[in-house]
């Protein structure tokens, strides 16, 4: 794909590309933030002769579901109340403290009675998952390469000692 032009959206969220030759184009917005979380929007639009294409997109539609289950290495039982932090991979440092990881997190929470926690996260964005003890804040485990496709669900398992 060849980059034709870039525009900034105005205060109403609108980017006007004006007159274009009839064609299929790809639109990419990689810095759209909702609730301080950046989403990656990429979609195709068709421009037709003599027509005005007014495309409108809700940024958080570019999401998928990340369903994480945490189990014990020792007996494979689900573990509840495990702290879970979802961090953009480019902001994650395995040596960071839990507090530091929480500051750069996009999402966080704790596992439920079945060891499960579910997040709606931006699609096509690389994340690290960091597990910690909610009483001591000690790190349990992390994984450095999680992502979901738009509208898809990823079921994921992590074990801790």
């Amino acid at each position: 794909n060849i980059l034709l032009e870039t525009r900034l959206t105005d205060p109403n969220g609108l980017a006007d590309f004006g007159d274009l030759n009839p064609n299929n184009y790809m639109l990419v917005a990689d810095s759209a933030k909702v609730n301080n979380v950046a989403y990656l929007v990429q979609e195709y639009v068709q421009v037709r002769t003599g027509a005005v294409k007014a495309k409108e997109t809700k940024v958080t539609d570019y999401s998928g579901t990340f369903a994480l289950t945490v189990r014990s290495y020792n007996n494979n039982q689900p573990l509840k109340n495990i702290g879970v932090i979802i961090i953009p991979s480019n902001k994650f440092n395995y040596a960071s403290t839990t507090a530091a990881n929480l500051k750069v997190a996009d999402f966080s929470g704790v596992t439920n009675d079945t060891g499960l926690i579910t997040f709606k996260i931006p699609s096509n964005k690389q994340y690290s998952v960091y597990l910690y003890n909610t009483v001591t804040n000690a790190s349990y485990n992390y994984n450095n390469s999680v992502s979901v496709q738009k509208d898809a669900t990823v079921n994921y398992l992590m074990n801790i000692y």
């Binding site: 900034l8 007159d19 030759n21 790809m26 990689d30 639009v45």
Partner: peptide, 26 residues
Amino acid sequence: TSGKLTYRLTDDAGKGLANVKVSLFD
């Protein structure tokens, strides 16, 4: 022979998101 294209990005409430860079590719 041309057409026009506008593109609007919103949050969940339909409010426009300002100052977002949008790139157009052929």
